[in-house]
Amino acid sequence: MAVIVQEPIQEGVWQLTQRIQDSYSGSAACGVILAPCASFNQKAMEQLQRDMRSDRSDAASDIFYLVPNGLLGVVLSEQKLADAHYASLLIKDFTERQGLLEGQLVVASFPESGELTEQALSQLVHTSLQTRGESREIQLFTNQEAPHRVSSVLIADPDEVSREFVKLRLEMDGYEVEEAHDGREALEKLARTMPDLVITELNLTIVDGYQLIDRVNRDYSTEVIVLTDNQLPKNMIRAFELGAADYVTKPFSYSELAWRIRKLALRRM
C-alpha cells in the first residue's frame, strides 16, 4: 500500500491554484506575488489589505499565507504586470517595515509572464522558495519562451544603464542572459556559456568590440549585434566587415532591438 505524502511544495501549489481559479477568468490578466515571510497574522493581513486599497481602490486583491511554505501570497485579479509589479513595491515596503520579509519577492502576471498552467505555478512557487535569503530584491517571474534558435544572449557593455536594461528586458522575454562589462570578461563568458547571440558595444576596454566580433566569428557560431554610441558610418562598415549581423545605435528603443533579434532568429532557422 502506497502512502501518499503531500509534500509542502505540492500543497502550496495546490492552494495557490485554488486561489487563482477563484479570481481568474479566462481572458483577463491575473497578477501573482509571492513573498517569503516568517509568519503573517490576521492583523497584518488586514493592515496590508487596507494599505493596498488606499493606494488603488479599484483593485481586488486576495491576500493569504501559505503555511507549509512560509510564503505570503497575493493574487490580484485583472491586474497587468505593471500593476502587479507596483503592488509588489508596496508589499515589500510593508513587509520590510514589519520585519517579516525573509527573501526576494517574486512577481508575475499571466498571461504577460507566460501561459498560466499548473506547471508555471509550480515553477513560481519553486523560484520563490529558492530566493529565501539575504537579498530583498523584487524578481520578475517569466515563463516566456525565447525564439528557438536564439535563446541565450551575452551583453557586453561598459555602460551600466543600458546593459542592465537590456538584460532585464531580455530576461522578461525568456532569454537566458549573461553580462560583461569589458572585452575580456566577455570572451571568458563567451567560452563558458556559448551563447547564441552577443550584443556588444564597440567601446569596450581591454579587448575592444571589433576584436570581440572578430573572435566570435572566427571561433563560434554565435551571431553579433552591435549596440553602440558610435554613429560613424566608417565604424559601422568595419563592424559589418568583421561579421556583425546588425548595428543599433544609442539612444535605442528596446522594441527595435527585440525586433532585430527575432529577425535574426528567423534567419537562423
Binding site: 572585452g183 569596450l204 558610435n230
Partner: peptide, 8 residues
C-alpha cells in the same frame, strides 16, 4: 590600454 580608449 591605449587601444581601448573610449574615443571615436
Amino acid at each position: 590600454s591605449l587601444l581601448a580608449l573610449d574615443y571615436t
